[in-house]
Design a protein around this nucleic acid. Structure first.
Lengths: 195, 195
DNA sequence: CCTACCGATCGGTAGG
DNA sequence: CCTACCGATCGGTAGG
């Protein structure tokens, strides 16, 4: 029954990756041990090495999954039927939803990237750059005059990601401000800086 | 000659703390080893334990030093003689200068806080809260109408720190935008969101 | 022959 | 201020 085992394979692999993302986010990649991950998954350590070649490979899988979701969301999204402003506001809501919905993945992406071997690190960074470029292009469409100062536009994009990426340290979805209210506040702040 | 030894003591302690901040920032607290720190300082590992009780104690010293500098800068600054807006712009420049001037210390403050034992962690967090409260009070002075929505004002303050704290990932002081230009861009963005 | 999986243990290195 | 070490635990792999 090789087919049923293959199905089980993918399922177990996903459990390991998800638990690893949580563990790496909570304790940091270096401080987290493969033994601890095995205990959390209630499997043997050897079984983890059946699914992944190394501890780093687990980190890469967790990061890649999340980064692919972000690229899909930002770069491969449906053509907007509204104004660029409305598109930016809507996209910002979607990104923040993706961030808060996969908080562990988002955290390791921000904190543990340096623990990847150089080739995998480059792969993640390339996708991050694509995401940044997409936001930059969108801001340029909103205000074409920003083309005159590319360096300043780039700074505005990075300040946007600063606001977005820092939210995980303080924002609580069940707190006084809703996720969409926060997204709109970030959109407003970025948009008013464009003029 | 206890006095000359005491002078040498403080000097060596400072070297250890500075080199540790750099090492912890580059490799992460967990991945960095005390042996590696000793080699970097060209002293024995045992000597490090003569100056510090634990690896965590070194991290705390490096964080505390930087946090005290920030508190001094932000909370104990001279009474402004200009408008609140001008004070905010000037303070933002000073904070960014402090960030970029002590990049390693700033990085460990953002990334390695969770590795401190709970009591020391609380001590650092208390100082960070004081800094946040000071910026919030300043924004309130700039636009007193923001008092009507305290939750939104707090969000604006956290977005400000998001922009500031994220700069270390992309900003290069010898790049196309100067440190003061970036500070002014952050000030402008925050100020226009207040209206 | 293969894949899936276990208990036990490897050579090295961590903080102290 | 050093060398020599410790108890424990690390990431990764052995035979079956």
């Amino acid at each position: 029954m090789a087919r049923t085992q293959a199905a089980d394979y993918d399922q177990k692999r996903e459990i390991i990756t998800a638990k690893a993302a949580e563990l790496f986010a909570r304790r940091g990649f270096s401080a987290a041990s493969v033994s601890e991950l095995a205990q959390t998954c209630k499997i043997s350590k050897s079984l983890i090495y059946h699914y992944y070649a190394s501890k780093e490979a687990i980190l890469f899988a967790a990061m890649s999954d999340h980064m692919d979701t972000l690229v899909e969301l930002i770069c491969n999204r449906a053509k907007a039927t509204t104004t660029p402003e409305a598109e930016f506001r809507s996209l910002t809501r979607d990104i923040l939803q993706c961030y808060t919905g996969a908080a562990h993945h988002q955290k390791i992406l921000l904190y543990e990237l340096s623990f990847l071997p150089a080739p995998q690190q480059k792969e993640i960074v390339a996708k991050q750059r694509a995401v940044i470029a997409e936001i930059e292009a969108l801001l340029l469409r909103i205000n074409p005059r920003t083309k005159a100062n590319k360096k300043k536009l780039r700074a505005k994009v990075m300040l946007y990601f600063g606001m977005m990426n820092w939210t995980h340290t303080w924002f609580n979805a069940s707190g006084p401000i809703s996720r969409n209210e926060l997204a709109d506040e970030i959109s407003n702040t970025t948009l008013c800086s464009l003029n």
